[in-house]
């Protein structure tokens, strides 16, 4: 077992994903973040985006269920007046995706090596400079962990991950 898979399995054990529908109003993100902070709940990642209904936004929060029982996190969140609904996703019941951008220092030889590596992961090169490359990968968090670990063998100038978004896995027969 590699270090990366050990880490991600350990993480998925502690992680739970909450998708939270909130009113699209000023200050709502601060209310959610403030709640986590003052109750001592840890967030692994948080992604926010508008939904197809402009009155609402959806937060995808990956919570550390070791910092507090999941049920307590959900009940406290649900008390926020601007929180409309909460659904929880166990990691094995969710389809999760995340985006990573990484800028790596390269010379002529390394350039093709990294392009090849990113190609194996079905990532893309999105920007090329004289001595740097910016690559992008969208995929499962585990896949991103793998590429991040491999890129660690080179000189990473900057690396940014989006935090994950998730939806429930569909049943075999269901829509």
């Amino acid at each position: 077992m590699t270090a990366a898979t050990a880490r991600s399995e350990g993480e998925s054990f502690r992680h739970h994903i909450l998708t939270v529908l909130v009113e699209n109003k000023a200050g709502v993100l601060a209310r959610v973040a403030g709640l986590f902070s003052r109750r001592g709940f840890n967030i692994f990642s948080l992604a926010v985006a508008p939904t197809d209904d402009e009155r609402f936004s959806r937060l995808t929060i990956v919570v550390d269920v070791e910092s507090a029982p999941l049920e307590q996190v959900i009940q406290q969140l649900d008390k926020l007046v601007n929180v409309v609904s909460i659904s929880q996703l166990a990691p094995d019941a969710a389809v999760e995706r995340e985006l990573m951008l990484a800028t790596v220092a390269v010379d002529a030889r390394l350039r093709s090596e990294i392009i090849e590596l990113v190609g194996v992961f079905r990532g893309e090169v999105v920007n090329v400079g004289p001595d740097r490359l910016t690559v992008m990968l969208a995929g499962s968090p585990d896949t991103l962990d793998d590429l991040e670990r491999l890129l660690g063998g080179y000189t990473i100038v900057e690396l940014q991950r989006s935090g994950r978004v998730a939806l429930p896995k569909l049943g075999r027969s269901g829509g």
């Binding site: 200050g27 601060a30 209310r31 403030g34 003052r38 008390k79 007046v81």
Partner: peptide, 14 residues
């Protein structure tokens, strides 16, 4: 004040 009292009100409005 809505920022200050976020954690000590049931809700607040600006």
């Amino acid at each position: 004040i809505t920022g200050v009292t976020m954690g000590i009100t049931k809700h607040n409005w600006l």
